[in-house]
Amino acid sequence: MNKSVIFGVLTVAGLAAGTASAATLDDVKARGKLNCGVTTGLAGFASPDANGNWEGFDVDVCRAVATAVFGDPNAVDFTPLTSATRFSALASGEVDLLSRITTWTFSRDVDLKFEFAGIAFYDGQGFLVPKELGVSSAKDLDGATVCIQTGTTTELNLADYFRTNKMEYEPVPIETNAEGQQQYLAGACDVYTTDSSALAATRATFENPDEHVVLPEIISKEPLGPLVRHGDNQWGDIVRWTLNAMITAEELGVTSANVGELAGGTDNPEINRLLGTDGNLGEQLGLSADWAKNIISSVGNYGESFARNVGSETPIGIARGLNGLWTEGGLQYSPPFR
């Protein structure tokens, strides 16, 4: 095979993709629908109900962007993407936005030429153990057998963590989260390790969740967020400020219940700017003045979406923790709307 020909074709295709993606917003508006890539099913983050309507935390980000553009949370088509196909689907323009539990890393941002619009969810790798093991800290796990998904960053994190703490472990390789649950329940391993959000979802499915605990140690940083292609800053801004609007709304106490009332005008200038009663922030984004108001009234603010999909009231029951607002000891912090 003549390699230069292949690379030539790749370059041409890459150039074509680069020029064509200059105005995603116009493409989306012309189409009348947002194409959003989500995961192929993860409890709390993306799943279809019996009627095929998608719901979940990642899905809410898609719906919020669709609402910002069209004022309609249903003007979005969801494409379930596997981890192998997600980046090519975004790069080729099959989807306009990828909201698929994707960790923000240097190489994905720089080398793969994507732009992360922010951090929607601070995740990290944790450990799930049966209570009867009598373990209260990950430091007590010396010599344990650990169920671990092969070929993932979690596998490397685990090796690093045990080496730095001078402990031994015996890995039990698994392929999928589903297999991990089964192996762990069957007693093939003492410990199951993966992202703590997935651990919480897994534990929630057990017949007796109280017999299992998630250990307090989080051994890795997994900042998950929506991402778009490099090179279309306007579109990137829309996604970034959609997420920021949801976070700011929670901080300012704007909820789906009171947004209609607050949009009539308040004494707080930032609320007025956010909801479009004051200033022209929407216009600067190329959107309508009430874009953020629409997001809050149909999708809700960050806290509402969190509570509805993964919060402590749901079977998954993830505490806010790092995902709390900065005013409440968490890390969610939006730049000001000004």
Partner: peptide, 8 residues
């Protein structure tokens, strides 16, 4: 089957 299982 995976998508359905992802529903809580």
């Amino acid at each position: 089957t995976n998508l359905i299982r992802a529903n809580t």
